[in-house]
């Protein structure tokens, strides 16, 4: 295995594009090193992105948009009060990944690129309308986060492409987001179901909403019907019932070691209801 430490994303993309064998990018390493140790992935080229200027930056633009560098670890997200104020759901999603120790290394970008349908960092990004900046051998492009996952362990990134940063839109006024996941223990588990809700209010009425579900399909899914169920409402009980039903209806999970299909469908609705209440309270400034 060759270990590379490029100083620009262009250089990183070039190394990856020219590689003949298995290639991995390294930021936090909390997935890559596990796969290497288990012999699941034995890369010939390992490209460490952490020497590239700006990869640890978290920048809030004047218009309120955020740009989060590819190597920013979870612990730094939670320590950024302005980010927590704008996008608490995004931060709490990432902070659920692994232990305190893992939070010292694991990154949002890595969580996305690992391609797990159960990635805790991803649903809130999708609900927030986040995008990623990609550098490839043919230049750069920006696409929505939900267009990255392509199935378990797979992404739509092509050979040589590397994500340089994640962009979050401006929070704006009267907005709130939240992420909840279900795990059997209190920590250290992979989500059996995850649900993010992002909404904006006009007075008490929800005027914009996006609901994303994790671990209930091969990729994170956007549950449009669930969002519609609460649009124009004050999140009354009837709206919550419709939301839960729509979230459950959107879920199309498998049964596996972590939970049955029936359980996941049921709990998708439960989490949607609970996450929506938190997001609503946050939007109200409560």
């Amino acid at each position: 295995m060759k270990y590379h430490t490029p100083y620009s994303f262009e250089e990183a993309a070039k190394i990856a594009a020219q590689a003949s064998g298995t290639t991995r990018f390294l930021a936090g390493g909390t997935d890559v090193l596990v796969q290497m140790r288990a012999g699941i992935v034995l890369p010939e080229e390992l490209i460490d992105l952490k020497k590239i200027p700006g990869v640890f930056d978290m920048i809030r633009n004047e218009d309120g948009r955020w740009r989060i560098g590819a190597a920013v670890p979870g612990a730094k997200l939670g320590a950024n009060d302005a980010l927590v104020a704008d996008w608490p759901g995004v931060v709490e999603g990432m902070e659920l990944v692994g232990s305190t120790q893992v939070q010292g290394r694991a990154t949002l970008t890595g969580n996305l690129c690992n391609g797990s349908p159960a990635a805790d960092g991803v649903p809130a990004l999708v609900a927030a309308g986040a995008s990623v900046d990609i550098t490839g051998p043919n230049g750069t492009r920006t696409i929505a986060v939900e267009d990255i996952p392509a199935g378990p362990g797979k992404t739509t990134l092509t050979k040589g492409e590397v994500i340089s940063a994640i962009n979050l839109p401006a929070r704006g006024n009267n907005g709130g987001d939240a992420y909840l996941r279900f795990i059997p223990r209190t920590e250290m588990d992979i989500a059996v179901v995850g649900c993010a809700v992002n909404l904006t209010l006009d007075g008490d009425v929800i005027v914009a909403a996006k609901v994303a579900l994790g671990a209930v399909a091969p990729t994170v899914i956007v549950a449009d019907e669930a969002a519609k169920a609460i649009l124009g409402t004050t999140l009354d009980d009837a709206a919550l019932d419709k939301l839960a039903a729509a979230a459950s209806a959107a879920a199309n999970p498998i049964s596996d070691k972590r939970g049955s299909r029936e359980f996941r469908i049921e709990v998708a609705g439960v989490l949607a209801r609970r996450a929506a209440k938190i997001a609503y309270a946050r939007a109200k400034g409560e």
């Binding site: 059997p184 223990r185 209190t186 250290m188 992979i190 596996d256 070691k257």
Partner: peptide, 16 residues
Amino acid sequence: LQNSVFLDYRVPLASD
């Protein structure tokens, strides 16, 4: 065996 790591073989944690 489907759960041969501590992530999926769920022993109690301090927070549990």
